[in-house]
Design a binder for these strands. Sequence first.
DNA 1: TATCGCGTAGAAAGCGCTTGCTACGTTCAT
DNA 2: ATGAACGTAGCAAGCGCTTTCTACGCGATA
Lengths: 356, 356
Amino acid sequence: MTVTLADVAARARVSPATVSRVLNGNYPVAASTRERVLRAVDELDYVLNGPASSLAAATSDLVGILVNDIADPFFGIMAGAAQTEIGGQEGTGRAGGEKLAVVCNTGGSPERELTYLTLLQRQRAAAVILTGGALEDPGHIAAMTAKLSRLADAGTTVVLCGRPPLPGSDAVVASLAFDNRGGGRRLTEHLLTLGHRRIGYVAGPVERTTTRHRLEGHRAAMAAAGLGGDTAEQERLTVHGPYDRRSGYDATLELLRREPELTAIVAANDTVALGACAALRDQGLRIPHDISVAGFDDLPFSVDAVPALTTVRLPLFEAGARAGRLAMGNEAPPPGGIASIAAELMARDSTAPPRA
Amino acid sequence: MTVTLADVAARARVSPATVSRVLNGNYPVAASTRERVLRAVDELDYVLNGPASSLAAATSDLVGILVNDIADPFFGIMAGAAQTEIGGQEGTGRAGGEKLAVVCNTGGSPERELTYLTLLQRQRAAAVILTGGALEDPGHIAAMTAKLSRLADAGTTVVLCGRPPLPGSDAVVASLAFDNRGGGRRLTEHLLTLGHRRIGYVAGPVERTTTRHRLEGHRAAMAAAGLGGDTAEQERLTVHGPYDRRSGYDATLELLRREPELTAIVAANDTVALGACAALRDQGLRIPHDISVAGFDDLPFSVDAVPALTTVRLPLFEAGARAGRLAMGNEAPPPGGIASIAAELMARDSTAPPRA
DNA sequence: TATCGCGTAGAAAGCGCTTGCTACGTTCAT
DNA sequence: ATGAACGTAGCAAGCGCTTTCTACGCGATA
């Protein structure tokens, strides 16, 4: 029924070993022999049996990319860039390099994250790239650390992209961490410079590194300006919610209720900011005339928002591509295995000085 | 080094066969024995060797989801929904159902589409879901048909989601096709009803089914209204380009150059529409006062555009979920294996009667 | 009591591939 | 002329699991 290596060998009048070596290209084979084998492969329309090959070689060509939300371009851009670096290099013909880069959607659930890691471990994945913020739960962190070191033991390369390093883990080859704290700080400094004093913050889900870092940046800027007040006051001007449009809408309404004198709102990311804008418009407020709004990430649609959204640009594509290269061993890891990736303020039209 | 089935068997004082049966749960095993085996599995932290298991069983638990652009929520939403149906059903403990749903990004390239299919074939994937429009190139269609029937022969379930049926192929279990033609027609009828007569069309990439169907719907509506003119005129009011923001921007400028009297622009999708809006604004035109704009897909951000975008809603999540169920064999295929999925007009604020 | 059948477990034969080792020419240096 | 060295190819032993077939023990049936 299905064509096997042996069939190809028979047709090319060589041994199975030779066919295997031609296909893997890591052993000298005479040009004429190789030629003959390749022809037989084509004629029989042979496709390697991946499981058999992985079993014998004790490695596979699977590379997993874990994302929190596949419908969010934030992850899509990184994953796409990584895949380009992994599945991209054809050219060598059928030999080598043909990895299967696949993305797995955890939906932000820690259990699913672990489940996918186990599934990838089952498949003896060549590499795993974890993207996006991590959950700050001690239990989960411990479980992840254990799982990742088990993966590393089995020869899987682990790369973190847009996620802070896992303390005390030597399983991770490299972590590319976005400077969310610095970005958040500069964004709020921008607002402060414009003259804002009462700033509301729509934060992401609690217990996420990304959420915390951005919020810390914001509060650091506020504190440096002698604002921000005590903890209770900080809490009053902060509302947490998921990274979606709806959360931005609802949280904005809530912030307005708590503090009608708000002159600016900083959102956890651009999608949330869009929801915030919608809420403000529905309240009859004009942006930025009555109130300023800022986002984070600089996703493609942000520049087309009306008014164009002030935000913080994260080099998602570059980071994803680099993670891909790191996973493939095509790039040297940064010193110490950790790289901080700069976040750039993009001041646009959704922020302006507060009304006098 | 690594723990194998035999290790577990030894520790549980049973034969490897029994361990296998406990893990796969398709053979009667006494409760006490199962208990013992499960404990050993836990104690040894055993993880099944996927390749070995796939080799022996001649199937794997991999399910591939092919998308054209992973950074586009259009695909992200479908893929996410499908993954929910595939990787989701835990609850049964570790037994059964634990598939590895992975998404593969073709970037719209036919070669990569084929490459991924081969890679999935290598892995003996349990199922493959192809999403999004297909390339209308005879050579590629033939190659795809051949590849898919080879996959089907090997036991892989093939499902098409948001992609028209492959004529003459019995390899495909089901195809869920969006009614792009009907949606396109209703959208243009809406514009016609408002009084528009000079309508520009920013189409998607040529030779794509989605592009063609939407355009056909548009032209059918125009023709039914006695408008549209000859082929040359139709061509003059149509500009093709990729499904991105940039294309919408550039094409809109081009259309305006060709026909300054345009009162409405229909875009290939919402992202393109956003680019069109940006171009119009940069030209000092107000939407919808000076010119109307419509999109397609009703992606999440469309309702937050300013003005809110008139578009055609596609039930992406539902379709993706259904495709996932179909792939898992958890839902009966539609009669004839083909289902047409309705597209609903969402008339919002970006369209209005033309200026008198 | 003898027989059958059922529930449960083990033995062992692969699944299709990779790779260490061996074997067989050649060519080169001695 | 002889042997070392090299370039190629084959042999065969697994890789870790699934599954068919066989075996065993026991309660039910006759």
